[in-house]
Structure formats: structure tokens, C-alpha cells
């Protein structure tokens, strides 16, 4: 099978994640969109690994690293959102404008 449909689908998923980050107002929804982006990157890594028939499996190992970092990012991100919610009683990112003039 050709590699191109997978790469195009991953690019589409990436741009959907960008759209979600720019449009969403709730901070948890922004984190969901970041997950979409990381998922698109994982698909690209695995497709390139299989396309090049890499004996050392670099693509798959990097996909595993990306998954690990994504798990850490979700934990930290939700903790920050929780703290913001506790202090400001809202999770809407357009209301966090304390450092904006």
C-alpha cells in the first residue's frame, strides 16, 4: 500500500488540532486538541518507520517516547487547569488575562 494516504490523514489530523487550539475556549478542550496533534505525529513516525523498513525501529521507539511525554503533559496540564479553576472559578482561557495589558 502507498504511504501517502496515511501521511495526508496525519497532516489533516494535525491541522484539526491546530484549529481546536485556536478556537476552543475551555482549557481542557485545548488539551484534547494537543492530544490530536501528538497523535498525528505518532502516526507519521510509525508510517515512516514502516516505509523505510528500519531495522533499528527508530520510528516506533520515538512514538513510544512521544506517548510518554504526552502522558506527562496531560498530567501537568490538568493540574495547572485545576489550580486555575480553583483560583478563578472558571476554566475559560480567554478570562485568564491578568498578564495582558
Amino acid at each position: 500500500m502507498s504511504a501517502q494516504p496515511f501521511l495526508i490523514a496525519a497532516a489533516a489530523l494535525f491541522s484539526m488540532g491546530i484549529y481546536g487550539i485556536l478556537v476552543r475556549r475551555n482549557a481542557v478542550m485545548v488539551l484534547l486538541s494537543i492530544e490530536l496533534i501528538l497523535n498525528a505525529v505518532n502516526i507519521n513516525f510509525v508510517v515512516f518507520n514502516q516505509m523505510l523498513s528500519d531495522v533499528l525501529l527508530n520510528g516506533q521507539i520515538f512514538a513510544i517516547f512521544v506517548i510518554t511525554i504526552a502522558a506527562a503533559e496531560v498530567g501537568i496540564g490538568l493540574a495547572i487547569v485545576l489550580m486555575l479553576f480553583r483560583n478563578r472559578q472558571t476554566a475559560n482561557i480567554n478570562e485568564f488575562d491578568l498578564m495582558k495589558w
Partner: peptide, 21 residues
């Protein structure tokens, strides 16, 4: 922004990688 990113990415990917898996 998202459509332009998609356009750039798919243009580059379609022109660079046409190998079979």
C-alpha cells in the same frame, strides 16, 4: 491557519514521499 498548514504539509508530503509500504 489550519487549512494553510494542511495545504503546505500535503503539498510537501505528496511531492516528497511516493514510496510503497
Amino acid at each position: 491557519i489550519s487549512f494553510s498548514i494542511f495545504g503546505i504539509f500535503s503539498y510537501i508530503l505528496l511531492n516528497t514521499f511516493d514510496r510503497q509500504i
